[in-house]
Design a protein around this nucleic acid. Sequence first.
DNA 1: CAGTTGCTAAACTAATTGGTTGAATATCTA
DNA 2: TAGATATTCAACCAATTAGTTTAGCAACTG
Lengths: 119, 119
Amino acid sequence: MVQHQTHHLDAVFHALADPTRRHMLRRLAEGEQSVGELAAPFQMSFAGASKHVRTLENAGLVRRTVRGRTHICRLEPAPLEAADEWLRFYERFWGERLDALERELKKPETTTPSGGCDD
Amino acid sequence: MVQHQTHHLDAVFHALADPTRRHMLRRLAEGEQSVGELAAPFQMSFAGASKHVRTLENAGLVRRTVRGRTHICRLEPAPLEAADEWLRFYERFWGERLDALERELKKPETTTPSGGCDD
DNA sequence: CAGTTGCTAAACTAATTGGTTGAATATCTA
DNA sequence: TAGATATTCAACCAATTAGTTTAGCAACTG
């Protein structure tokens, strides 16, 4: 099983907390993109966009392959899955009836059903 | 239907990008907590923790009711659902076979199946 | 070879962040 | 009323961030 450490989530959520970077991920969902292609839609300087790609890469959301002089990026879904997993802990709070979940949660000392040390 | 605007996600993901705040949310999943109770487990100053609660509140993740001199916080799941919804767009990238999804994604000009203007 | 292209690196700025402390406010309690 | 409790507010600091510009480095192209 993949270890979802807390500082991973820090980086992942932080990377997602920016519209430019989220937009880049959406583009990458359509297929591989060079840094230049990723940067193109934005007003900002090329170097600026390149830094966004870098933070995505540092968060593990993007993997880069250098082919010639162009850097080809592709989506790395694992950290997104980790983030989703974290979020889904709260799934019962939406959708479900509230009184039902209150009963569920009042069961004493069932600290974390998923048994993790994550926060 | 709830409108999930981009700046909402900015604030939500940013709020989640901090272990202290994620920890607070976990505590709130067990039930209502006062700001003091939320602050207690942490080394930092009370005012510091109070600021974290505030950012959670600003992101819409926490709702506060003032009862007497204590502020009672409870979890507000809607933004978590919005974040999860955003993440689940990428669900096919994990779990699913990769070649299958490549075929799916190569369907030309199906920009965003969920039909939104979100990023 | 010279020039252009794709990209990173470095240095800088302005704004934001996470944290502190000390004071202010309001509520409960003796 | 006086004091303790629960909390925010304001001012401040150090570190980080998002952005810029300029320069540099490979790798293609003629």
